[in-house]
Design a protein around this nucleic acid. Sequence first.
DNA 1: TACTTTCATTCACATTTGTGAAGAAATGAA
DNA 2: TTCATTTCTTCACAAATGTGAATGAAAGTA
Lengths: 198, 198
Amino acid sequence: MNQFVKFISQFISLSNEDTIALENVLSNKSYKAGDKIVQEGSICNSILFTVSGKSRSYFVNHEGQEFTWNFHFNDADSKFENYFLVDYYSFLRQTPSHLTIEALEDIEAITLSYTNIQKIVSKSINLEKVASIMSATAYENVHKRAFTLLTSNAKERYLQLLKDEPYLLNKFQHYLIASYLGVAPQSLSRLRKEISKP
Amino acid sequence: MNQFVKFISQFISLSNEDTIALENVLSNKSYKAGDKIVQEGSICNSILFTVSGKSRSYFVNHEGQEFTWNFHFNDADSKFENYFLVDYYSFLRQTPSHLTIEALEDIEAITLSYTNIQKIVSKSINLEKVASIMSATAYENVHKRAFTLLTSNAKERYLQLLKDEPYLLNKFQHYLIASYLGVAPQSLSRLRKEISKP
DNA sequence: TACTTTCATTCACATTTGTGAAGAAATGAA
DNA sequence: TTCATTTCTTCACAAATGTGAATGAAAGTA
């Protein structure tokens, strides 16, 4: 059974027709390490579901600095939002993406296009629920990110990462974690030293 | 004609039936300056549309510090999202709110409850579009906020505010603006001095 | 008006974070 | 393995931001 369909089934019970309708609009796609899965400036017209491989999404500011927005992978540690490779902002509005998504390893993914989502959603109330769960989750995620950035300093953000998603430290390079926290790599190093032996 | 209906009409053409259906589920509500319109911890079960008066939404961190999330008012300067008094996060999921919304002046508002939205949305495709416009806008807004906080420092955030929403400086007290930017009031003062005479 | 309260600014100093350079450690390739 | 490359850490110093206190301006109240 398709991994994406299996994933959706955890949330919503799908009829046989729903399952078939869904499977019919899905296709497989693969990327090589280093590929840009989503390009800043281009419109994000499909949602990709990660089957295997790690990737990261990031913003680039006016000075060319990269800031990791999120990490994406599919294993026991991953959360809901980690599976999906998409700039929701761009996807929802069909406007140019601000985000770039880059394959850190070879990626296997399942793709669902914007137009196909419209098609299946209009056919099935259950599938409509999936779309709303996904967008509510995306909203929660970005909301939490903004809250953390507004209300806490670098040390607090690192402690929160240690608490909420410590496995990221083993999966991704620390300079990427640093840009996820919004600090310089050297500052992260300093924080780690300070926290490890108080 | 109801101000909220008028507002909606700018985006979507409403049939007579739609208009009547919408007006039937709206009601007026007023608050006194200082009132809490949305309380942290309680579920946000309606969306309020500001007719008059200023308010602000804010988070409180673990140390009791307040961080302004947004300013809300309804005049020539206001944007889409400024009208609405709601914690979308809480509203979408019907979970306890993280935000508090406080009336800075006496407020007149139009209220639309969660259950009533479901009712009218299921009756009219046009009204469904309104709901999706609103949630896409909420998403864009929070996305932009997170992006700015992640990628720019205090000075850049202040310059961006000067560029994008300078009128806030005349409408709201500077210590509130400071907490919106995520800096201490004294730091905002220093930035203003530095920028006014280079 | 005078009085009180609140807010904005300024200052000195503390703390946090950034930066560039250097070396250590880890990783990957031949 | 050895060598080259990348990443992590450490350090010293610079820059940014926070903090508490003091002052004066502005706004509200009697």
